[in-house]
Design a protein around this nucleic acid. Structure first.
Lengths: 224, 224
DNA sequence: GAGTTAAATGACCAGCGGTCATCCGTCAAG
DNA sequence: CTTGACGGATGACCGCTGGTCATTTAACTC
């Protein structure tokens, strides 16, 4: 794998100040994201994450107690950033929107956020499996806050939406994003299978399907 | 773990006839299902599956090339059985239904099928990861067939549904089932977090939410 | 420059999915 | 009943991973 003459590792500037530790933490999150984008959660090895930041494997565990904790922290960042983006776009608009306008806004806010949605889709089944209660709580608290803002904005844009509706709508969108991302972002073998013409009914275009589903959902709420 | 006086394993009746092999295969699937029901995909060890059928670990791999293949085969069975159940109920009805009637039929057909939905929700991210193209193809072929029948029946019950609608509707329901099952069926730590009163907006009642989502979806399609 | 703190290291471990040379139950032939 | 051989069953073994911890040593203090 490596030659004996590999360039010797330069001295590692130790992170002693909290500031430096935070920077190193960020580096690790970036490395994890970059590797995850190219492969999958299972294929990202903690040793690879360490190597990418030129640290030893053991060091990574000084910053994140488990692999799942590392990726949940990454999801935490991405989720907060996405909610901020969405809420900004919702706040930009004025007056009432049609369901389709809102659906497009949501779907478009997710374009280019494949990493986020892929991680989101793995949240419950993988990321929350090997994590402390503290981290889970902090994560969910942040979600709640962003979600509350979004719910409020949704009611501004869609007058026919009750507060209860807004919460349920967000949960349903979450479910759709999770499900559709998994259906669109599949293993190579499955991708090959879906190449066959008659497999068309099983193929999923994430953005298109999500837009369609949300549009239909909102039309259904309005038609009530 | 075990005493030295454990009851010695009785002679293993070797499966020589195809019939016996099929029976053993079924035993392994049952064992996997039983263990999965009590824990999770990651927690089910191939050695445990073997032990439950009183076979050596290596023997399991004579019947299924990988752990994922074993569980995908299990999902295959459960999916076929569920489609049969749903299609039967759809065929029983006569004339046109309301969207809510259909939503309830679908949601009710999934009650008591937690094992199936839990596996379905893990299909793309775990089960199709380490499996041959052949198995994937056979699986998807069977899905296509059942799905086609369901699509036809849906159009009978819901006259406002075009053929294209029916296919998309099924994909959306699949996405919802996948997403909602993951949100409802969470890790112990996450479950504890959601116990807190203010976490209510993050709690998910699978059947209730699925019924609501499908009802809304169909109302939206009809209102078009 | 000596002493102190704690970040970084990497050899190490346990546990898993998966392999394969070997063993031996089963049955057919004589 | 004996014998031979087919192939199902076995379990020691392997590679690899996430995670640990005694030890090293960079960086700061006085």
């Amino acid at each position: 794998m490596v030659g004996p003459t590999e360039p010797r590792r330069l001295a590692s500037p130790r992170a002693r100040r909290d500031e430096d530790k935070e920077a190193r933490r960020r580096e690790l999150l970036d490395a994890a994201r970059s590797l995850f984008e190219a492969t999958s959660f299972a294929e990202v090895k903690m040793a690879d994450v360490a190597a990418r930041v030129r640290l030893a494997k053991g060091t990574v565990f000084l910053y994140f107690p488990t692999k799942e904790a590392l990726f949940l922290a990454l999801l935490d960042d991405l989720l907060t950033a996405w909610f901020a983006k969405l809420n900004q776009r919702l706040a930009q608009g004025e007056g009432a929107w049609t369901g389709e306008e809102l659906a497009r806004t949501v779907a478009q806010s997710l374009e280019g956020e494949e990493t986020f949605t892929r991680l989101l889709a793995r949240m419950q089944t993988m990321l929350e499996q090997n994590v402390t209660l503290e981290q889970t709580l902090r994560f969910k608290e942040r979600v709640l806050i962003s979600m509350g803002e979004t719910a409020g904005l949704l009611q501004q844009r869609l007058p026919f939406l009750t507060a209860e509706d807004a919460g349920q709508f967000i949960r349903h969108v979450h479910a759709l994003v999770t499900g559709l991302r998994q259906m669109a972002d599949i293993a190579p073998v499955a991708r090959e299978a879906l190449t066959l013409p008659h497999m068309a009914p099983l193929r999923v275009d994430f953005t298109a399907e999500l837009t369609a589903a949300i549009t239909t959902l909102l039309r259904g709420l309005q038609a009530r």
